[in-house]
């Protein structure tokens, strides 16, 4: 099962894609995706309900979040009321170790994304702040990466023994599915996703042309 773990819709301040159009695009272009996760910036979108769209398109549409820490941006999967109460998602300077610990405590998982990117990725910050305890998974393939950013992320994962996931980081429709994560087992809901991410039966994959 292949899921794009990192995408943004018009609910993000810099997102320009409607979720319906992501689905339409995936089907029209026959992308090898079974679904995607919406990770809107600095917020938890509790209201949006994509079950009808899932039924219509046969795609798995899950919700996460992308928050900001002193080490850069971090994807959160398994967001629930407890985690929303524990963290101020709108902050630009959340302490990463608190995000990782809170996610773990609340049954979620934190995944630092685009680690190779300057300022908003963790690679550069590891040089000055040192490694962050508790991190287990990072995004090693990001569809928006430039230059050697993905190679740097892969090297970081190898150095610290992190598992790697992939996501497109799509902000416009046609970028969905550029990178994704291939799971050995089926994922039907966000609980399945968190459970699988805690294991190791998956790999980051790239479909960039």
């Amino acid at each position: 099962m292949i899921l794009d773990l990192h995408s943004h819709s018009i609910r993000s301040d810099d997102g320009r894609a409607k979720v319906e159009n992501y689905c339409q695009w995936i089907r029209k272009r026959e992308l090898p995706l079974d679904g995607f996760v919406l990770t809107e910036h600095r917020q938890w979108d509790a209201k949006s309900d994509y079950r009808k769209l899932e039924d219509e398109t046969g795609l798995c549409i899950l919700k996460g979040s992308e928050v900001e820490t002193e080490y850069g941006h971090v994807l959160l999967f398994g967001v629930n009321d407890d985690l929303v109460a524990a963290l101020d998602f709108s902050r630009l300077d959340l302490p990463l170790h608190e995000v990782v610990a809170a996610a773990d405590r609340c049954g979620a998982i934190a995944v630092p994304c685009h680690p190779g990117r300057v300022t908003v990725g963790m690679c550069a910050h590891y040089g000055t702040l040192g490694p962050c305890e508790g991190v287990q998974v990072i995004e090693t393939l990001n569809g928006g990466s430039r230059g050697t950013e993905n190679e740097e992320a892969i090297a970081l994962a190898e150095q610290y023994g992190y598992r790697g996931v992939g996501g497109s980081d799509a902000h416009i429709v046609s970028f969905i599915g550029r990178c994704a994560t291939k799971f050995e087992r089926e994922i039907r809901d966000i609980g399945d996703l968190v459970s699988e991410l805690r294991g190791d039966a998956y790999e980051a994959v790239s479909f960039k042309e």
Partner: peptide
């Protein structure tokens, strides 16, 4: 319409709609 401008390395420098 999705719009992009990329460089010779294929990196997206400008995107939009």
């Amino acid at each position: 319409v999705d719009l992009t401008i990329s460089n010779e390395a294929g990196e997206t420098r400008v995107m939009g709609t």
